[in-house]
Each structure stands twice: as C-alpha cells, then as structure tokens.
Design a protein around this nucleic acid. Structure first.
Lengths: 195, 195
DNA sequence: GGTCGAGTATGACACTGGTCATAGTAGCCG
DNA sequence: CGGCTACTATGACCAGTGTCATACTCGACC
C-alpha cells in the first residue's frame, strides 16, 4: 500500500482506506481523513457530496481493486506458479507489513464489513470488493490447472482463511496464524491441480 | 446465544457483546447497552468503573469463554467424532443463525479486534478470547487422534477459516463461503487423524 | 476586463459520545 | 431510629461527529 495519490480526491480515498484499516469505519472521522490526506476540509463536500457513506464505499472499492490487481503481480512473480505459492505470496504481503510496521492495520474491507453502521450500501461495496479480489484468484488457479469447478471454491477458501488469519495475527500480535495457515493449507491447494 | 443473564451486570455484558457483534465497538454506545439490557444507566459507572473499555473487554472475554464451552458440547453431539464433523458443527451454528435471523451479526471478538480504538487492553482481551476458543478445539482434535504437534496448528487454521468465512458470508449475505469452507477443509482435517 | 466555475476555507449547527458529579432510594445491621 | 452500603437516577459537561451555508481564491475562457 504505497502512497500513490496524484489528485487530492484520490489521496482522500486512499487516506480513508488507510485510516479505516487501522481504526475501523465509525472511529474514522471525515476531518481526520482530510488531515491525513493533507487535503482541505472543504474539499470533502466538494468531491464526496454523498457524505461519509460515499467516501467509505469508494475506499472499500479501491481496496478491492487494489487486492485484485496484486494477484496478477503475485502470480507473475512466482518462478513456478502453484496454488500454494500464490497463497504464500498473498500471506507474505501481510507478514512483511506486520514485521516492518507492526500490527496496527488490518484489511479495510473486513473493517467495513464488521463496522457496517454506515448503511447497507457499504456492505454491498464490501461484497463487491471481495468479488473483485476472489475472481482473479480463481482465474489464476484455473491457469495453474485447477478444474474450474473447484477453482472458485478454493479461491473463496483462500480468502476466507487469509482474512481470518489476518484477524488472529492482529489480535495476537504474532504472525503465527498467518504462517500456519500457509503451511497447513498449501498441500490441500496443490493437490487440486490436474496433472 | 440465548438470553442467560441473571443479574443486571451479566445482562449488560451480554447486551454489550450482542450489540458489538452487530454494529462494532465504536458504534455501540454505553446508553444503548444499558437500554438493551433494560438496566439503569447509573449502573454502568457502578459495575464498570473502568468505563467503556472495561465493559467491552468483559464482553469479549465472555464471548471467548462462551465459544470455548460450545466446543465441548459440539463434540459431545457428534455420533462419530471427526475433525471435519466438529468443524461442520462450528460452522453450522453460524449458518443456522444466518438462516433464521439474517446476516446482521458477526463475531464480537472479530469486531473488537478490527475496531480497536478503545485501547490496547481490548486487543489483549481479544487475543485471550481467541486462545480460550482455540485451546478446547485443539484438545478435541487430539482426542480424535490428531498428533498433538498438528492439533494446535489445525485448530488455529479452523478458527481462522471460520472467522474469515463468517466475514465473507456476512458481506455477501450468503452462507456460501461458510459451506464451501466446510466442504473444502473437511478432508484435510480428517486426513490428519492418526490411524 | 468581466464572468464563470472548480476548488478552497471557515464557521456554525444539531447531535451524540463517554464521563463525571450529585442526589436519591432501598435494604440491612446495630 | 441512625447509619451504612449497594444501587439507582439524572443532569451537566466537553469533545467529537457529519453536515450545511457561506465566503473566498484563482485560473480559464469569451
């Protein structure tokens, strides 16, 4: 998650995702988002006339697209593409971040799902984000030789397990749940490739 | 999660867990908890001089102990105890609730982990709750014949996957992530029993 | 130059949050 | 009865929220 906002609008969406990831939706204030993005407070109502709900939904959508794009880069970075390798790479993104920056942040989509006081549209945005994340994973699995029927199921399983392991790791302040998830789930994933 | 509070204090802890489960920590107000528990507002500062932080932590701890106790009942209810059967029973608790009452609520411990604006002690309470949940699961696995070395890892995997599947199911308003987790993870779990 | 509009900047509003202070009530014990 | 403790009840406070209204800057365009 590198700082990559050109315009002030994108910076605000990015900052919103960043803060939601850390503190949750309700605990993240609009003024706080503007300050974090070093954007004028008045721009909030200008760019996001739909208020906080719109801002949160866009942040969630951004996170989903970001995660989806990362999948392609992960599989491209594998010397020998295997399902377990992809899963390990996805988990490594989190273990690396936790090792470098601490356990302060989680997945913004998860935060939006749990903290859905904003309205039902946020829940829909979260579902769309998970779909945008799950689809490329399933596609990568089929490319690796997993039958199409199981690819979608395994992709869902991978994201479920990863999301839960992130949760446990954050609570325990230890990457152990993430590493055990990779170790235990890897063989199951590789066993699904048709040879 | 049946209403089981005798005294007003327990009712408040229970109500707090219930509301946190639905709306998250920050979005749950103290006055709201008192009203939901049909307890006088003044009792809040009497029973919980530590303020919201104490109330939230006790609610999280209660949820952890509750989940831990459920495990023993689950394994007792299985006619033939297998790891996959236990996992299916744990997931069924959620699919049943979602089928009956809708997708409004999630796991309170997950909510407390994500929405940790209350302070670091809440995170520790969440870690303790996950431990109180994970330990009996690992014990049940060893009883079923899983080598002790893997039992702890598999218990962590089960809870990670379950927690993530709850998240996805809630976002999608569909129990599909939960059912696929059970279907895909079952064989892996049963393959770990020593025979 | 004048006009327009995108974007910026503030201040105010109504409201809710957690917390504190204080007063009141009930029941038990001596 | 008085006194004490457990509990209840209420009101006030201040910081914070999202949102709105208004006024300002500044560059582009005719």
């Amino acid at each position: 998650m590198t700082q990559a906002g050109h315009g002030p609008r994108e910076r605000m969406v990015f900052s919103a995702a960043q803060l939601i990831r850390r503190n949750g939706v309700t605990a993240t204030g609009m003024r706080e988002v503007a300050a974090h993005a070093r954007a004028p407070r008045g721009s909030l109502q200008h760019y996001f006339p739909g208020g906080k709900e719109q801002l949160v939904n866009e942040a969630v959508g951004w996170a989903g697209r970001y995660a989806g794009k990362r999948v392609a880069r992960f599989v491209a970075g594998l010397r020998q593409p295997t399902p377990s390798g992809l899963f390990a790479a996805m988990a490594a993104q989190w273990t690396d971040e936790y090792a470098a920056d601490g356990f302060a942040a989680g997945c913004p989509v998860a935060a939006a799902t749990v903290d859905c006081a904003t309205g039902d549209s946020t829940r829909e945005a979260a579902a769309a984000a998970f779909a945008a994340w799950c689809t490329p994973v399933a596609a990568a699995l089929t490319d690796m030789g997993v039958p199409a029927a199981r690819a979608a199921s395994l992709a869902t399983l991978m994201i479920s397990t990863l999301e839960g392991a992130i949760l446990l790791s954050r609570a325990e302040r230890d990457v152990r749940p993430l590493t055990t998830a990779v170790r235990e789930l890897g063989p199951l994933l590789d066993a699904a490739v048709r040879r």
